[in-house]
């Protein structure tokens, strides 16, 4: 990693982040666009959850994280608190790995 690469990555990421707020910020978007914008977070968050729980290094992976994410979904569905959701996911993932080393 070089400093030039760090700065290039910083400038590029910032441009990606700023595009929406700078070009469209504070403006009322047309109804149709608003409908898409309101649904976007659900699509992206679900994609991040699926990627975090079921993939590893560009391939599907079924490991201890899948169990942790499944547990998190269960706790969220039963309306558990934020910390409960994260805590249970960590405990299930860590517990599964600990069991796997015992067997």
């Amino acid at each position: 990693m070089t400093w030039a690469a760090v700065l290039a990555l910083a400038a590029g990421t910032y441009a990606l982040k700023a595009a929406g707020p700078v070009l469209l910020g504070g403006r009322a978007l047309p109804d149709r666009t608003m409908r898409v914008a309101n649904l976007l977070p659900a699509a992206l968050l679900a994609a991040l959850i699926a990627a975090g729980g079921l993939t590893s290094d560009g391939a599907w992976a079924l490991d201890a994280r899948a169990g942790g994410v499944a547990a998190a979904i269960l706790v969220a569905w039963r309306r558990g608190s934020f910390l409960m959701i994260v805590g249970v996911a960590m405990a299930v993932t860590a517990g599964t790995r600990a069991l796997a080393t015992l067997i």
């Binding site: 659900a42 968050l45 975090g52 942790g68 994410v69 405990a91 299930v92 993932t93 517990g95």
Partner: peptide, 14 residues
């Protein structure tokens, strides 16, 4: 189990 924290946070927020 720290590597499951981020997907779990997203579950809580979604």
């Amino acid at each position: 189990g720290l590597d499951v924290v981020i997907p779990a946070v997203f579950v809580a927020l979604l």
